[in-house]
Amino acid sequence: MRFAFLFLVATSLVLSDYCECKQFTRCGLAKTLSQIKGIKKSFLGTWVCLIEKVSKRETTALTVKSNGKKAYGLYQIPSEWCKEGKRGGRCNIKCEDLLNDDIRDDTACALKIMEEHGFQYWSLWTTRCKNDNFITNEIYKCPDLNRLSPERSLFLNRGSALRRRRSINRTIRKSRFRRSRRTN
């Protein structure tokens, strides 16, 4: 028993050097997702929250449930959507491909799941992300994200329009004041 445990630990340490694993930062994940086709910008915060809650933003996350079923990768995609050892499942993908750093195929499969079942397919989204805008608000503070939230851009556009109006009004007042001084 002790030998088996030591062998498992040693094997894990050796394989971890060859592992393609990445744990995204929240901002890094938001930036990467914003560049993937199919992710709507208005749902960017929802996707980041989902990933954060189900896999802690780690590409190699693998969960084995007590009934033997597995969930893979960033989105914790269940084995019915992929096939171990070869392409297959409802997403026609190898399960092992959901555990590497290339998240485009993971995201394509997650988008398919979302289109068929919605975000409520992931129970953690329902309990931890639904009606919670904290992460959405946080990612729009990311310096690398070249996009403003719809609310912020609307506010800023309103604010800049207001500033332009005030500037025009000041200019008009100044020119009226100058004219009135010349006539007096």
Rank of each mutant, 00 (worst) to 15 (best):
G28I: 03
G28E: 05
G28T: 04
L29F: 00
L29Y: 00
L29K: 00
A30Y: 01
A30H: 02
K31P: 00
K31T: 00
T32V: 08
T32P: 02
L33R: 10
S34F: 00
S34C: 09
S34M: 00
Q35G: 05
Q35T: 06
Q35W: 05
I36W: 12
I36N: 02
I36S: 00
I36V: 15
G38C: 06
I39C: 02
I39S: 05
K40E: 14
K40N: 15
K40Y: 09
K41F: 13
K41G: 13
F43G: 11
L44C: 03
L44K: 08
L44T: 04
G45H: 02
G45F: 02
G45R: 05
W47M: 04
W47D: 07
V48E: 01
V48T: 03
C49K: 03
C49A: 10
L50Q: 04
L50S: 08
I51Y: 05
I51E: 08
I51C: 07
E52D: 14
K53R: 09
V54S: 11
S55W: 00
S55L: 00
S55A: 01
S55V: 00
K56Q: 14
K56D: 13
E58M: 12
E58L: 14
E58G: 13
E58K: 15
T59E: 02
A61S: 11
T63Y: 10
V64P: 07
V64F: 09
K65F: 14
K65S: 12
K65G: 07
S66H: 10
S66E: 12
G68L: 04
G68S: 02
G68R: 04
G68P: 04
K69V: 13
K69P: 14
K70M: 13
A71N: 10
Y72T: 09
Y72C: 09
G73T: 12
L74F: 09
L74N: 06
Y75F: 12
Y75H: 02
Q76C: 01
Q76H: 08
